[in-house]
Amino acid sequence: MRSSLILCTATRFLLPIILMFSFFILLRGHNEPGGGFIGGLVAASAFALYAISHGVTYAQQLLKVNPINLIASGLIIALSSGLFAVFNGSNFMQGYWSEFKFPVIGKIGTPLIFDIGVYFLVLGIALLIIFSLAEEEEEIQ
């Protein structure tokens, strides 16, 4: 897929910024608009943009991990955040929060870990769909 030079150059700088922004959206989601779903989608669109401008193969190299692994680890993170409570003797998915307040993020708790799982999973599925579709188009061309 051929793209304009401007788009190519711009995305190279945009990608890290969008990724950072997506992570910011994820972390602040508990108190302000945002969260795992939105963060994951934003991150996915960053990679999608890269795939359009540079081609899927480069985008995949940049991602380094297979999107399927992202989906799996996302599910595992989300699930284990709930299991934490089970090992502590209360109900599955009962929330736990740290007493200590971290700078920028604030308190860390299991719901936040759950949200991180959602983030990776949503990122994974969006990229898996887009990559496998785009890969196919490239092969045909």
Partner: peptide
């Protein structure tokens, strides 16, 4: 209970987290 100000997000990741788990 949820330690969050954004109620929509607290519902998603805490109150109804099991539903969200099913959905993802």
């Amino acid at each position: 209970s949820g330690k969050g100000l954004n109620v929509v997000n607290v519902i998603l990741v805490d109150f109804r987290a099991l539903d969200t788990l099913g959905e993802i």
